[in-house]
């Protein structure tokens, strides 16, 4: 019995699965309106943006060398308002504006990546600077000279823009089926089945060994920061379409939630350890907690509080287990 318990808590994916099931059963019995098909399928859409950002964070943290991306929220804000301005104010078709927005996200990620890998500046510093710069640029873009000097959100979109965030296919939200799941599958495949994935884990767990075995450290790191930018831009597209509004501050605070979820999902903050599956489970758990608390009428600030407690608690438990294993 003790052995089974040990396996469950020392295997993150198993532990999270168990936690998920327990919470699911608990909410189903205690919160009215939780366990029905509509709520369950509806709930999934709220996890998409956070899930994409958490995945971005996971990739960056995996790459090691103090890898972290504090700028994901700001990149999301900038891409969101960029798409909004192009479509809503300049009258562009989403067919051109969305790819340009994704390209902008890629550009910002690439800029971070160049400074980290070629400039050899620490990720925390680069992305802190990125957080400031991209957020500020988002506010500047949002200014509509017609209405004075203050940044304004954009809410005038053509009907065709809403399919990503508001349509359903077979009862399941479009963005879950056609954006989130494919992205997850692609990254699961990349990380577990390709040379690039093995290189990423290698770079993250032992930089020196990776370099000596011929892995191009700079290229790997450059790629993950660029991917982080692209994923943030995807998240921006989804959220802008879902809430039908482009806001220059939409991503504020998301970076910390994304980091929390990545770490909760078993991505070691030292790099080189963790899986896409773990991150998916963490996103599912957090989305479910948010939904449950909301249905129970508890203010959303407590969702953040609970998130903090779960994060510290899960890592504490982990460290405790490592200590015990050593003895």
């Amino acid at each position: 019995m003790r052995n089974i318990w040990d396996t469950v808590i020392s295997n993150r994916v198993l532990f999270l699965s168990l936690l998920f099931v327990i919470l699911f059963v608990f909410f189903s019995f205690t919160i009215p309106g939780f366990f029905n098909l509509y709520n369950l399928s509806n709930m999934t859409q709220y996890g998409v943006e956070l899930g994409l950002l958490a995945l971005a964070e996971a990739l960056v943290i995996l790459s090691g060398g103090g890898g972290i991306d504090l700028s994901v929220g700001s990149m999301m804000s900038l891409v969101s308002i960029l798409m909004g301005v192009l479509i809503g104010r300049a009258g562009w078709s989403p067919v051109f504006a969305v790819p340009l927005g994704i390209l902008a996200g890629m550009g910002m990620g690439l800029f971070n990546g160049i400074l980290v890998s070629l400039g050899r500046i620490l990720p925390l510093i680069v992305t802190l600077a990125g957080l400031y710069m991209y957020r500020s640029l988002a506010l500047i873009i949002a200014v509509d000279p017609q209405f004075g000097p203050n940044p304004m959100p954009v809410s005038t979109f053509p009907e065709s823009f809403y399919f990503v965030g508001q349509y359903r296919v077979g009862g399941i939200p479009f963005q879950v089926l056609f954006i989130f799941l494919p992205v997850l599958l692609i990254f699961h495949f990349l990380l577990s089945r390709t040379t690039w994935g093995r290189q990423l884990y290698g770079v993250g767990s032992n930089e020196t060994a990776a370099v000596f075995s011929g892995i191009n450290l700079k290229k790997v790191r450059l790629t993950v920061y660029t991917l982080s930018g692209i994923l943030s831009a995807l998240a921006a597209w989804v959220i802008t379409s879902r809430i039908a509004s482009a806001r220059p501050d939409v991503g504020t605070g998301y970076e910390l939630q994304a980091i929390t979820i990545a770490v909760l999902g078993g991505i070691s903050i030292q790099g080189g350890e963790g899986t896409v599956g773990g991150v998916l489970l963490a996103v599912a758990i957090i989305t479910m907690i948010n939904n449950g608390l909301q249905l129970a009428g508890i203010h959303q600030i407590w969702q953040l509080g609970a998130l903090g407690a779960v994060l510290v608690g899960s890592v504490l438990l982990n460290q405790f287990l490592i200590q015990r294993r050593k003895i």
Binding site: I68, L256, I259, T260, V263, I269, Q270, H299, I301, W302, L304, G305, A306, L307, G308, A309, L311, V312, V315, L316, Q319, F320, Q323
Partner: peptide, 21 residues
């Protein structure tokens, strides 16, 4: 607890903010 500082204080940030609210 040997929890990395960024994790500890990130969690604390959210919990204390909830308390303020």
């Amino acid at each position: 607890g040997r929890v990395p500082p960024i994790i500890t204080t990130l969690g604390m940030m959210n919990m204390v903010r909830a308390l303020v609210f």
